[in-house]
Each structure stands twice: as structure tokens, then as C-alpha cells.
């Protein structure tokens, strides 16, 4: 059946599009923002703001 052959091509094409979208955005992001900003995430921010752990 022809339909499934077309669907196979569509799946290849969509996969390439999704992959390309991520790669392009990755490149844009890494060239726009400094590494210092991108890797500034620190664990435990919410706890530092809200918890003193005094029961």
C-alpha cells in the first residue's frame, strides 16, 4: 500500500525536522548567552528561600 510508504518518508522527514530544530536552537542559545549564565543553576534555591529547618 502506497500510503504506508509515504508515511515512512513523512516519519523520516519529521524526525529530521525535530532534530534540526533542537540543533539550531542549541547553537543559537550557546552563542547568545555566556556559559556563566547557562550553567548558573544551583541546587536547593527554594529551600534556601523558604526553609530554616527549625522544628
Amino acid at each position: 500500500m502506497q500510503t504506508w510508504n509515504y508515511l515512512e518518508y513523512a516519519a523520516w522527514g519529521l524526525s529530521a525536522l525535530f532534530g534540526l530544530a533542537m540543533l539550531v536552537d542549541w547553537f543559537r542559545t550557546d552563542t547568545t548567552y555566556s556559559e556563566d549564565v547557562l550553567t548558573s543553576s544551583r541546587e536547593g534555591e527554594l529551600e534556601a528561600m523558604t526553609e530554616e529547618h527549625k522544628v
Binding site: Y33, D36, V37, L38, S40, S41, R42, G44, E45, L46, A48, M49
Partner: peptide, 8 residues
Amino acid sequence: GPKGTKVG
């Protein structure tokens, strides 16, 4: 937050 996270 206060620990220096700019993007979390």
C-alpha cells in the same frame, strides 16, 4: 535565588 542562580 540567593545562591546565584541566573537561570534555573
